[in-house]
């Protein structure tokens, strides 16, 4: 019990429960499978990117450029798919390769020239995005093949509501889930994953223990790029159009979700559970406001307040903890 009270995740979870109760009391259709499945589909984009950002934060870095990476991956995938055909697998492969390549560029700049990750990725965000917009002429892309459109509507579980409309668990959600499990295994059960925590906690010591720091850096930014590639495809699946400005500008929103989940910007801490709860909190908030018929322009006010309250509470608990430690040392 005491152990749970010390965890950030517990509080986020309680807040989600509280909101859910309030929202359901106003509109019972919030807590239905239909709404839930819908949220799980539409938030898979944010959820997947959040996992990548979590990895970067754990390793002690930060990545701002992933929105541009996702956009580039999405464009290349869309052009290739429309021009040459293919299938879902090639679509993902193309997007992920592009993502990994761009991620590796970030890693090389950060490691070889020892430039802080936030500065590097602010620069590469502008570079990737700028070059893409120039090359693509800023054009929107429509007209995906039929199989691409059908995949977006595919479900692994189909139910029918009272009005006779079909709904269910989307394949897209399943992709998110698969990535989540993969990420969990990496972080928890591989030497690589523990190396990310070690590097985030104390990079010099990680090198002394025998981790190859450059390889860890390459992995983490490549993984971010990989997930950005997948997220790019999913965005294309969800809206069926590719626009240059549909993703760029959302980088801080994703960061906010991860931070709400308790990951530290100083590296070394953060859990998948927390990150997913952070995403859930944002999903519940925005969906709930719609359900309660609050005008959508109130959305950012609430999110902003939640972020401020959450980080203030964390700061308060950190200070309490420090005070406790000092008291222990003094005895």
């Amino acid at each position: 019990m005491k152990k749970w009270l010390r965890r950030h995740e517990t509080y986020v979870f309680l807040v989600i429960v509280l909101f859910s109760i309030i929202i359901t009391s106003q509109n019972a259709s919030f807590l239905t499978l239909e709404n839930l499945f819908d949220l799980l589909k539409s938030y898979s984009f944010l959820g997947i990117l959040a996992i990548g950002v979590l990895f970067v934060l754990i390793s002690g870095g930060i990545d701002i450029s992933f929105t541009a990476v996702a956009t580039v991956a999405m464009y290349v995938m869309a052009i290739a798919t429309i021009q040459y055909g293919g299938n879902m697998l090639t679509a993902f492969l193309i997007a992920c390769s592009v993502g990994v390549a761009l991620g590796l560029i970030n890693a090389v700049i950060i490691y070889v020239f020892n430039i802080h990750s936030i500065i590097t990725t602010i620069a590469t965000l502008n570079i990737f995005y700028g070059v893409l917009t120039v090359l693509s002429g800023g054009k929107w892309i429509y007209g995906f093949p039929t199989w691409f459109r059908e995949f977006a509507d595919r479900r692994v579980l189909t139910l029918t509501n009272e009005a006779g409309v079909q709904y269910g668990l989307s394949t897209i959600t399943l992709i998110w889930l698969a990535i989540l499990i993969m990420a969990w295994v990496i972080l928890r059960y591989t030497t690589l994953g523990r190396g990310l925590y070690a590097m985030g906690g104390n990079p010099d010591s990680a090198a002394r223990v025998g981790f190859n720091i450059f390889r860890l850096q390459m992995f983490v930014y490549a993984f971010m790029g990989f997930l950005a590639g997948i997220a790019g495809v999913i965005q294309a699946l969800l809206v069926q159009t590719v626009a240059p400005n549909s993703i760029v500008g959302k980088e801080l929103d994703v960061l906010a979700a991860v931070v709400l989940g308790g990951a530290s910007l100083f590296g070394g801490t953060g859990t998948l559970l927390g990150t997913m709860l952070g995403v859930a909190l944002i999903a519940v908030m925005s969906n709930g406001l719609t359900m309660m018929r609050v005008p959508s322009f109130w959305y950012n006010v609430f999110i902003g307040l939640i972020i401020i309250i959450s980080v203030s509470a964390s700061a308060y608990r950190r200070r309490q903890r420090e005070r406790r430690m000092i008291a222990v040392e003094a005895e």
């Binding site: 928890r188 059960y189 591989t190 030497t191 690589l192 994953g193 523990r194 190396g195 925590y197 070690a198 985030g200 906690g201 104390n202 010099d204 010591s205 990680a206 002394r208 223990v209 025998g210 981790f211 070394g268 801490t269």
Partner: peptide
């Protein structure tokens, strides 16, 4: 040269695991 964010057990064992070249923990 320890890791403040990791549990004591892992702090002790990590270098051994890296040295063995284990991929999984």
């Amino acid at each position: 040269s320890l890791f403040p964010n990791l549990p004591v057990a892992e702090n002790i064992a990590l270098s051994q695991i890296v040295a063995r070249g284990n991929r999984f923990v």
